[in-house]
Amino acid sequence: MMRIDELLATIRPLHREDLERWVQEAWVSALDEGGTLHFSDMECARVRLICTLRYDWEVEEESVPIILSLLDQLYETRRELNALAAAVARQSSEVREAILRAMQTRDDPAGD
C-alpha cells in the first residue's frame, strides 16, 4: 500500500489533480482511509501504465478509458484461460491428451 503523496513522489510528471480525477472516473481504485487515498501495489502499477499512455505517448484523455477497457478485457480473458488450463492440467493424462487432440483438430475459424 502507498499513500497518494508517496505515489506522487515516485512518478514525477504526475499531478495530484490528474490522479484524483482518475480515481473519480474509476480508472484506478483507491482506499480512502481518514481522507487520505491509499493505493495497492497493483493499482500503483496501473497508475504508472496510465502515466505512460497519457504523458509519454500523449494519448488523449478521452481515449484512455477505451484502452483500459480493452486491457481489462484482455487480462480477464487471460485469467479465465489460465483457470481453464489449470483445470485441464488437474485431469488425468488421458483426458488432457484428448483435449489437446481435440484442440489441434478443431476447425480453424480463420479458414486457413
Partner: peptide, 21 residues
C-alpha cells in the same frame, strides 16, 4: 524499480497457484 501492471493483472487469479502448473 517497480513491477509492471501485467504481473498483478495476470496473477490475480484464484487458480494461479493451483497444482498442475
Amino acid at each position: 524499480q517497480h513491477e509492471f501492471y501485467r504481473t498483478y493483472a495476470d496473477a490475480d487469479s484464484p487458480f494461479h497457484t493451483q497444482e498442475g502448473f
